[in-house]
Amino acid sequence: MENRLKEEAGKLLKEGKVDYIVGYGKGSVKFRTSPLITNKEEELENLVINPFIANNLSRYPIELKARVGIVVKGCDSRSLISLIQDKKVNREDVVILGVPCEGVVDIKKIEKHIGKDIDQIEEIKREGENLTIQANGSNQTLSFKDAIFDKCLGCEYPTPLEYDVLLGTEISPKPDMEKSLMRIKELENMDATDRWSYWREEFSKCIRCYGCKNVCPACFCERCFIDVNIPQWVNTYATWQDNLVFQLIRTLHVAGRCSDCGECERACPVGIPLRSLQRKMVEEVKDLFDYEAGVDKDALPVFTHYEDTDPEEFIK
C-alpha cells in the first residue's frame, strides 16, 4: 500500500491536481507516525502506512484552504464526509486516498498487556492475527485485537466510504460491539450517584489544554463557544464543574458529526475517557434519528435541516 500511495501522491503533485499531500510520515517517537503535509515531491518518499497511523487528518483541508490529496482510513473518511456535508470542505478540492484499515495499534494497551513501558519495547511485528512484541530482548505474543483502540474493535466501516483511489483491497467489517462498547456499558450500568462521582473524578483531571477540541474534525467552529466571553457560557479555568460542562456542551455540539474516531481521547494528556461520552452520543443519535455521521456525503446533516414530516410540533 505504501508504494502505491507514494506513486499516486507523486502523480497528483506532478500533474498539479493538488497543492498538498496530507498523509502520514514516520514519527519522531517509537511506534508513532506524524502527519506529513507537503507540496514537495521529494518528501513523498517519507510517506508511511502501518498499524500506527492513528491521526485523523481530515481537519487539515479546512485550514489549508487548498486542493489536497488526503490519506484517510475508514473512520477518517466519515469525518471528511461529514465536513463535506457541512460545506467546510469541497469534495472537488480533495483527492481522497483511501486506506482499508484493520485497526490502529494503541501502544498503551500493549504497555499494559506486557507490563513494560514503551521505552523497553524494541519492536512490534504483525504476524497474521498476532503481534510479536520484542521488549528487553525477549519476545511476547499478543493478539492483534487486544492491541488496537476500542473504537477499532467496533469498526463498521474499515474501508473508506468515499475515495478516489483505494490503496488496498476492501476489508469486510467484523465489529465486536460488545468489546468496543464495554466501557460505555459499564458506565450505563452504574447507578447515577456512582456515575456522577466517576465523571467528577475524571473531569478533575482536565487541564483545559483543548487538545480534545483542537484535534476533533467535528469541532470546526471558527469561534468556539469557549472563546466567547460575552456572555461567559463557561469559565475558562479548570474547575471540575467547568471542565465537565465544557465537555458536555462540546459533546452536544458535535452530535451528528462525531463518527467515533476517538482522537479526543487519544489526544487527552491526562487520560480522560472522552470517547465514552462521544460514543454514547453516537448511539443516541442513531436511536433517536436513525442517523449515522459521515456515511453519505449527499445526506443532509441531521441537526441542520428540517423536514415537514418532523413529528415534533415546536418548530412548525
Binding site: N214, T236, P269
Partner: peptide
Amino acid sequence: SMKCMSCGICTYVCPTCHCFDIHDEN
C-alpha cells in the same frame, strides 16, 4: 507549524511554560 493543532498540550505539560490568565468568578 503546519501540522500543529493549536492546542495547549505542549505548554501545559512543559515544566517551564508559565504563562497564565486571571479571571473572576462570575
